[in-house]
Nucleic acid binder design. Structure first.
Length: 844
DNA sequence: GAGCACTGC
């Protein structure tokens, strides 16, 4: 029997491109009805357009066919791909479970629901009644039946009854993520089975295996909204406590800090990181009958590891599962799956497959067809998703200043194209966005009355969620066009509605690991073809659109097909630690979809050994095992364990610092005005410490935790991010709990608020020396020329302006982060003594 | 004197 089947979705039963409103998306507000005056005026030239634009005839790319006016060199046909899966509320900006609006991400709640119609519920149930849930589900049924994937229900069931692995190529919009789990959970193979298993120590016992499907997602928001959608479709309550007589929930989700899995759930949406952690404690995934990996094409480090572990598990002897097979459904939105196919096939079905050596891709163009034939031709034809045509225009020649070129294109589009139709421009980072915003705003002041107004909205990761939301708000002012200037956050994570025009700078910042420097740097690099198509697709979600690429057709052809997977770009220390924790002794030989360079791997092994995570024989030490289980980077785990040692005994303090370091946002906000700057320097006096950023963060957390009036007010007065501190507090709680579990802490620490007591300089020294155990290579000593030179590599490095030690001349520094932008910067800096460094180097 | 995007029992 062939091991698997490849499927593609789309389905010719699919209607022609339809407006979003015909799909099941939560809210697909049509753009406002354009008033006639808008259409009449907006095509007129901007007679007072900016001078430099006018000099170039401003409107360079009018489609008048005149070559002198820089007409589009080529127009491409429609871009397929990327239409939201039903129920995926990508239109809303990212929600955090830490948000106060958490409840909004829960199952549908109807105001009229009776709160007390359950008899035996342990937890008061406030959601809708089961009748109401069923009624709502019935209404959704009709929408479900229109999804392309719906008609393939029986094929998919049949295929998985006969195969263990199914690879599905479904465009977003095909409904694969929401529907396939529902097709499968009632299957005979998906039921819990009582079996005898053999433990690793040889003992045998009877346990239940299977009964649940896990669906992985790269993002929390996707896991939560998909679970919410599927729960609604199934008429199932979605929350932990909502088990009611005869009505347990069938669907749940599990993401960090938020676990909503009803007892007896059959379908569970999880983040990739969450499943990876689960695999460390339950390598055989005994709870599950099937794992579905969604969006595998995004190729995060975590998904690559999961794929490696699952491949071994599925093709293994299944002793740890009492012989119960684990079904695997791999889902991707991109066509190219030669690599994935070959990787998951049993090695003997692909003699040309060499484990761990498939850098790039092994593509056998005929492979897909062969696989389908072996499976009785069950392959499903692929057709375009629900996407409007997008015309693509290229530059004739490369642009030196692409930001300026973008400015010209945006002004051209704005003055020439009718309303409605917003513009989305892709830039590389905040700096560029702000520069272009300033320019555009300057010009928009000069537009004559006949030309619509422009509203410029920045959109990037370091904006607060509220500021991000601003970019999504439909501009209500009449005769106004919204221009969103975004980083690649708008490529996959967030979707802006109302966009008809995309301007693509063709570049983005990518993290790149440099093993000889031991540094990860952010580099501006050309995007991949896949990313370019993804970007242009953003123009065709609601109507026919246009995409202007600020690069030539030749540049496009030169682009990589795909982005490089993360595991080939980043420091693999976490990946190596997880492989070791999963019992893989020879990590260099372990087959992955793409194996990192041996140099990177050896570097990681050495680092782990130096941190005391590895035995000389290559197996994990007790500390190494603990490090793998902690939700922290390996270096931070090392620090935490060192802090628990009797000789240091500063675990609680170090947890406070690590909690602050492991938020997804900076704790300290940047003053925007001189007034803020002044107020800040007054209020922050009680938290800043001369020892540096680490002790300052410790003081911040201690002050925050000691506050018993209003933490929000406290944060605001110190110009500290409420959101970051809320997350830091959640991390702190999680770390404390895990330290109790790992027996690093004897008992739960006393609850807050505890009185604030400043850290003594002696104690501060102990704490910083604990950090030095993992960061001894991240140190620099002041040279005779007044600049810091790193001890590892003798590079010149400067203290980043965000550090409390910026501008201070110190004997030596330790830094936890470094960035290379226009200079080599050290961040999270502490003031240390040179002899501490020598002492620590001597120890390792 | 400064910032790609995700994510973790």
């Amino acid at each position: 029997m062939p091991p698997k089947l490849h499927m593609k979705f789309g389905g010719d039963a699919e209607p022609a491109p339809a407006p979003a409103s015909s799909t099941s998306k939560p809210s697909s507000k049509k753009n406002d009805v354009s008033n006639k005056s808008t259409k009449q005026h907006s095509t007129s030239n901007a007679s007072r357009a900016p001078s430099n634009v006018n000099q170039n005839n401003g409107l360079k790319r009018s489609q008048d066919g005149n070559p002198k006016s820089n007409t589009p060199s080529e127009s491409q046909t429609s871009h397929k791909s990327e239409h939201d899966d039903s129920g995926r509320a990508r239109k809303s900006p990212k929600l955090s479970s830490l948000d106060s609006k958490k409840s909004e991400t829960r199952a549908p709640h109807k105001p009229g629901a009776k709160a007390n119609d359950t008899q035996n519920a342990k937890v008061p149930y406030n959601g809708p009644s089961s009748q109401e849930l069923q009624k709502a589900a019935k209404e959704l049924e009709e929408i479900r039946m229109r999804l392309p994937v719906y008609h393939k229900k029986n094929d998919i069931r049949w295929d998985l009854r006969n195969n263990d692995i199914l690879i599905i190529n479904g465009e977003t919009g095909s409904g694969k993520s929401t529907q396939i789990p529902q097709f499968l959970y009632t299957e005979p193979w998906c039921q819990k089975k009582l079996v005898t298993v053999e433990e690793s120590d040889g003992t045998k016992k009877e346990i239940n295996v299977g009964g649940m499907i896990a669906v992985t997602q790269p993002r929390r928001i996707a896991a939560m909204t998909l679970a919410q959608r599927v729960a609604a479709e199934m008429g199932s309550p979605l929350s932990k406590g909502s088990v009611r007589a005869g009505q347990p929930g069938t669907v749940g989700y599990s993401v960090r800090f938020d676990n909503q899995v009803p007892n007896g759930a059959k379908i569970k949406f999880v983040t990739e990181g969450m499943l990876l952690q689960e695999m460390l404690s339950d390598p055989n995934l005994r709870k599950y009958s099937a794992i579905m990996i969604d969006e595998i094409h995004e190729r995060s480090m975590d998904v690559d590891l999961i794929a490696g572990f699952l491949r071994r598990l599925v093709h293994g002897d299944l002793k740890g599962r009492g012989g119960v097979p684990l079904k695997l459904v791999i889902m991707s939105a991109t066509l190219d799956q030669g690599g994935v196919e070959a990787f998951f096939a049993k090695p003997n079905t692909r003699p040309d497959y060499v484990p761990g050596q498939n850098h790039g891709r092994i593509i056998a163009p005929d492979l897909i067809e062969q696989m389908a034939l072996r499976n009785n031709g069950a392959q499903i034809p692929y057709i375009a998703g629900r996407q409007y045509e997008v015309k693509t225009f290229y530059e004739h020649e490369p642009k030196e200043d692409y930001v300026h070129a973008m400015l010209e294109i945006i002004l051209m589009l704005h003055t020439q194209e009718p309303l409605p139709g917003d513009i989305l421009a892709f830039l590389t980072g905040q700096e560029e966005i702000e520069a272009l915003q300033a320019e555009l705003e300057k010009y928009s002041q000069m537009l004559i009355a006949a030309v619509p107004r422009m509203e410029i909205k920045p959109l990037h990761g370091s904006l607060t969620p509220d500021q991000q939301k601003d970019a999504f708000v439909k501009v209500e002012k009449r005769f106004t066009r919204k221009v969103v200037l975004a980083t690649n956050i708008a490529e996959t994570s967030l979707t802006v509605a109302g966009v008809h025009y995309v301007v693509d700078g063709g570049k983005s910042k990518v993290k790149q690991y440099r093993p000889h420097l031991g540094m990860e740097t952010l580099l501006i690099k050309p995007i991949s073809k896949v990313a370019a198509v993804q970007r242009s697709g953003r123009a065709g979600r609601e109507a026919v659109g246009k995409c202007y690429r600020i690069y030539t057709k030749a540049d496009f052809k030169e682009m990589d097909e795909d982005g490089k997977p993360e595991i080939l770009r980043c420091n693999v220390i976490e990946a190596v630690l997880k492989m070791k924790a999963r019992g893989i002794i020879d990590v260099l030989d372990f087959p992955l979809m793409d194996s990192p360079d041996v140099v990177y791997m050896e570097k990681a092994l050495n680092q782990l050994y130096a941190m005391g995570a590895l035995q000389p024989d290559g197996s994990l030490t007790k500390n190494g095992k603990a490090m793998a289980k902690l939700p922290l980077p390996a270096t931070h785990g090392c620090v935490l364990i060192a802090a628990a040692d009797e000789s240091a005994d500063c675990l609680l303090e170090v947890i406070d610092i690590l909690a602050c370091l492991n938020t997804d946002q900076e704790i300290f906000l940047h003053p925007k005005s001189i007034e803020e700057q002044e107020e800040m320097s007054n209020t922050r006096a009680d938290i800043y410490r001369r020892e540096g950023d680490l002790i300052t963060l410790l003081t911040t957390m201690q002050r925050y935790a000691a506050d018993n009036t209003n933490r929000r007010v406290w944060c605001e007065s110190h110009l500290i991010s409420v959101r970051a501190m809320t997350m830091a507090n959640a991390v702190r709680k999680q770390l404390r709990m895990q330290c109790v579990k790992l027996k690093l802490l004897k008992e739960n620490p006393p609850a807050d608020p505890q009185p604030f007591e400043p850290v003594t300089p002696e104690r501060a020294e102990i704490i910083m020396k604990v950090f030095l155990k993992a960061f001894v290579r991240e140190t620099a000593i002041m040279g005779p020329d007044g600049s810091y030179k790193t001890t590892n590599g003798k590079e010149t490095i400067q203290v980043h302006p965000s550090s409390v030690l910026h501008g201070k001349k110190l004997e030596a520094i330790m830094f936890l982060q470094h960035v290379y932008t226009n200079k080599n910067y050290a961040k999270k800096v502490s003031s240390i003594q040179a002899n501490w460094i020598a002492e620590q180097y001597a120890l390792c």
